[in-house]
Design a binder for these strands. Structure first.
Length: 911
RNA sequence: GCCUUGGUGGUGAAAUGGUAGACACGAGGGACUUAAAAUCCCUUGGACCGAAAGGUCCGUGCGGGUUCGAUUCCCGCCCGAGGCACCA
């Protein structure tokens, strides 16, 4: 019987679905394991072979964990709200719901063809009202909570209002609070709510007609679409993510994530410890204290000017009459610049003198106050003390505007550039003279605090997340306006369902599509017209999978108590500063309020690499329809043209197919190398326009899902980015065919019950050891190599013994589940291999057959070799002596002692 | 500029202090076949010696160091990828 992957895969996919093989049910008698993939955004282009890479890895791991006796939760769903569907709707007039549903169906078909062990009964879609009800619910909870710095956690808002009523809070006294109007009370609470409305400078993208979060902007262009983004002051909803900055930072330590990803988050959170210092200032005779932030309090004796951010609230107050028109000119210039211009132009120094002066609190010196865009309004206090000698930006500014530069470190040369390093001995610095810089920083901080000039302060770069989008295809806010005061909908009014419309474009004025809908009201009052951003729906979806149909809670407490948190999360590193920060924030918030039992949502995180495309090129001689083979192209003047990779095999062009590909190539002529046309290639992003997209459906049709799964893993280390190249796929396909032939010879089942030889057992044991070792580090590629070696060995030994093949099948089943199921059944098992128990079928065979001996000199391990476990000390010594004959490593050394550790490793200490 | 990674055959890659290149692709040769497909076997880092069996030297981006021994550890460079970027 031949290996008929088509029939086998169709049969088992149908059977798994019919029997609910992968249905996860809470079972307190079994340990749980939660394996999660980052759910996809269902785009119109469908899946290409890069998408399933992570899904295959997590599926292998899920299936392995099931074999080890864990109760595995392995769900999948769709991140279905978002801009592309809406852009498409604007272009075509088709409702995003229709295209989204169509895309989801296509994705599902493609995913099913690969044979994943998802529990589809738990599927979620973020655009489903039954799902986004809980996104809205979480928003309401954030709206009705504040961050209590004393308890260091989020608390229900009534705790704050009670305090305001009784004793006041912050800068609001009880009397002020109790006599405040509704509107005033709302404004005060907005300063504390976890979800709040604020007037902020936002990334406004005119082309998309919406604001974007910082992580949705790259180099001044929108991530989706690549349109220019500018700064604009707008009233927006925000999430007080910054309140969690310290906990988001500390929480990283306990997580099993890659160092690079943790580092990215640390940079994004951006902790910096410094000092807030108060400088007195004078503007046209009026005095005003100004607080600045610095990490270099030690350099205060070198302050020669101060700088304000153009957007700082202090600018109007600190602009003197004589300088007003120049300052206003400058502010206009700055405002006109887009974010992109400001970023690409960081080397041009701009600024204007404000006409006011500050007083150095330590020296009493009078210093000018300038305004410049190199100071950011959103960080620290929006005002700095400038020390040109020891800060490169201050230095550039001082050079440009001829401000004095005072060096503070002995022997440093500041004639060409600033001395930014924190090393050397202080000078020109009063009481700090003679100290090392590091000591001086601490001494200066102490001094400033002791003399009441300021206090220590830790700042974070992490900003509050802008949470509203002026778009249609997102979750509506459960907020309406009563006399202009934002008011939450009652919980039982959820979900607030997105209304139907056929006009998806935002108005020119920036008015969102929902503003055009006349009856978008609640009890006759206007509802909020912006919608939530893409990350809203993805921030807690992993919780919803635990009890996806629960009508009473985001996650039922029983389900949450059982599944706890995600044990393994697999996805791309591109979500490091977006989704993975927001999710952690969201989860911590729910944890503070007691809705979930774990503070961190994702215990272990693995980032799979991107799969790039491998594009092929033909070279047309300019002005002709003649194509020259890659090796000869340098002799001609040619144009490089992308050619569909389906017309190319092993870089050789199928010329007949190429002529048929497009009418203009119908009469193409070729200049060949040794009778063939060789194409050039390049590694690029996989995309339609480069004709390099490989569809997993085609691979499944030609080679089968098991081959696709093995090949994707065989391609190289999971975390590494690599180009897709189909040409190596025959290797793993051959392996599966060989594997099949261990069991079947044409029509006959070969499997026998004979006792395995030691040699045969050794082949199996090597494989078991390898698989166990590699599974935890996701080194699936080397395990597959080990499988190939084992199968080659067994083939050579003509071994088809049940004792060997049965555990082999169990071992292979996570990687190539269809073929494993089929053969498992053929061997007479009534139940799916999914329910085979790894210990029972595999570990029972791991006898103490081999162990490793290490030879060491001076206590350090020098040389390891494999010897039989039952070898006694004398024999080991004899063996080592024999090694002397063949090994240069122990030649002429005297054996001092042999340390036998029962079971495993033996140290042979040699002198 | 800063942070994180990585650099090994024609290609994807193994090896985390102990015979570098496992495994696979591609290439070349052979067997079976009318032929093709499929399958199987041999060769395949480079240079050199040898009739052959076999042997010698070089080789993991570059330069140093530690070590009996370094792809692996340490120091200094060069190059690629990803992230951050006036964050005071």
């Amino acid at each position: 019987m031949e290996y008929d992957f088509k029939a086998i895969e169709a049969k088992w996919q149908a059977r798994w679905a019919a029997k609910g093989t992968f249905k996860a049910v809470e079972d307190p008698t079994k340990p749980k394991y939660y394996v999660l993939d980052m759910f996809p955004y269902p785009s119109g282009a469908g899946l290409h072979v890069g998408h399933p890479l992570g899904y295959i890895a997590s599926d292998i791991y899920s299936r392995y964990k099931r074999l080890c006796g864990y109760n595995v939760l392995h769900p999948m769903g769709y991140d279905a709200f978002g801009l592309p569907a809406e852009q498409y709707a604007i272009q075509t007039g088709q409702h995003p719901e229709i295209t989204t549903t169509r895309n989801i169906d296509r994705y599902r078909g493609q995913l099913d063809r690969i044979g994943f062990s998802y529990d589809w009964d738990r599927e979620v879609r973020t655009c489903d009202p039954e799902f986004y009800k809980w996104t809205q619910w979480a928003f309401l909870k954030m709206f009705d909570s504040w961050y209590d710095p004393e308890q260091d956690k989020a608390r229900p808002l009534p705790e704050l209002t009670a305090r305001l009523e009784k004793e006041g809070y912050g800068d609001v006294t009880a009397a002020q609070w109790n006599s405040a109007s509704e509107k005033e009370k709302s404004d005060i609470l907005m300063r504390y709510r976890m979800a709040y409305q604020g007037e902020t400078s936002v990334n406004w993208c005119p082309k998309l007609g919406t604001v974007l979060a910082n992580d949705e902007v790259k180099e001044g262009l929108s991530v989706r679409g690549g349109f220019p983004v500018e700064q604009k002051k707008m009233k927006q909803w925000l999430l007080r993510v910054s309140a969690y900055a310290p906990r988001l930072l500390e929480g990283l330590d306990g997580l099993d994530w890659s160092d690079s990803l943790k580092e990215m988050q640390r940079n994004w959170i951006g902790k910096s410890e410094g000092t807030e210092m108060v400088f007195d200032t004078i503007c046209d005779g009026k005095e005003l204290p100004v607080t600045i932030f610095t990490t270099r309090a030690d350099t205060v004796f070198g302050v020669t000017f101060m700088v304000l951010a153009p957007e700082s609230d202090l600018v109007p107050q600190l602009t003197s009459e004589s300088c007003r028109s120049e300052v206003e000119d400058y502010l206009r210039q700055v405002a006109k610049k887009t974010e992109r211009e400001r970023i690409s132009d960081t080397h041009t120094v701009t600024g204007v003198f404000s006409g006011s002066y500050g007083i150095n609190p330590l020296t009493g010196e009078k210093i000018p106050i300038w305004i410049s865009e190199y100071v950011l309004a959103g960080y620290g206090t929006g005002a700095i003390m400038a020390v040109p000698a020891h800060d490169s930006r201050d230095y550039a500014f001082a050079r440009k505007f001829n401000l004095p530069i005072i060096p503070l470190i002995e022997g440093c040369d500041v004639s060409k550039e600033s001395f930014d390093a924190k090393e050397g001995v202080m000078c020109n610095s009063g009481f700090l003279n003679g100290m090392q810089v590091k000591e001086a920083i601490e001494a200066a901080k102490d001094y400033v605090e002791a003399h009441g000039l300021g206090k220590r302060k830790t700042n974070y770069r992490l900003r509050d997340a802008i949470f509203s989008r002026q778009r249609y295809w997102g979750e509506p806010f459960p907020i309406y306006y009563k006399n202009g005061i934002p008011t939450p909908l009652p919980e039982d009014a959820l979900p607030l369902v997105l209304p139907q419309t056929d006009e998806f474009k935002p108005a020119e004025t920036g008015e969102p599509p929902l503003a055009r809908i006349k009856d978008w009201t609640y009890e006759g009052l206007p509802l909020e017209t912006s919608t939530m951003p893409g990350f809203a729906g993805s921030s807690a979806y992993y919780l919803r999978y635990m009890s996806p149909r629960d009508g009473e809670a985001l996650v039922s407490s029983e389900a949450n108590a059982y599944w706890q948190d995600v044990d393994l999360y697999l996805g791309g590193a591109e979500h490091a500063t977006g989704h993975l920060i927001y999710s952690r924030f969201w989860n911590k918030f729910l944890y503070d309020l007691g809705y979930v039992c774990k503070e961190e949502p994702f215990r272990k995180l693995v980032n799979q690499g991107m799969i790039q495309g491998r594009s092929s090129f033909v070279y047309r001689i300019v002005g002709t329809n003649t194509f020259v083979s890659a090796g000869l192209k340098d002799s001609y003047k040619t144009t490089e043209i992308h050619v569909d990779i389906n017309l190319v095999r092993s870089d050789r062009l199928d010329m007949a197919a190429f002529r048929k590909w497009r009418p203009e190539f119908a009469d193409a002529r070729f200049i060949l190398e040794e009778g063939e046309y060789i194409c050039g290639y390049a590694v690029e992003k996989m995309s339609k326009s480069m004709y390099n997209v490989v569809n997993p459906d085609d691979i499944c049709a030609n080679y089968g899902a098991d081959t696709l799964r093995l090949y994707e893993m065989f391609l190289g280390p999971l975390e590494q980015s690599k180009p897709w190249d189909t040409k190596g796929i025959d290797g793993v396909n051959r392996f599966l065919k060989k594997f099949w032939r261990l069991f079947y010879d044409r029509s006959e089942l070969l499997v026998t019950d004979g006792k395995a030889t030691a040699e045969e057992l050794k082949v199996l044991h090597r494989l078991i050891a390898k698989e166990k070792e590699d599974m935890e580090s996701f080194s699936f590629n080397t395990t597959i190599s080990a499988f190939m070696i084992a199968v080659n060995d067994l083939t050579a030994m003509k071994c088809s013994k049940r004792e060997i093949l049965e555990p082999l099948l169990v071992l292979l089943s996570p990687y190539a589940p269809h073929i494993a199921e089929e053969l498992w059944e053929k061997m007479g098992h009534g139940q799916s291999v999914t329910f085979a128990r790894f210990p029972e079928y595999v570990e029972a065979y791991t006898v103490e057959n081999n162990c490793t001996y290490a030879v060491s000199f001076n206590g350090k391990t020098r040389f390891t070799t494999e010897l039989p476990a039952d070898m006694g000390r004398e024999e080991v010594e004899k063996k080592v002596r024999a090694m002397e004959q063949t090994s240069k490593y122990v030649e002429g050394k005297e054996i001092v002692k042999v340390i036998v550790v029962p079971g495993k490793i033996v140290n042979i200490v040699v002198k």
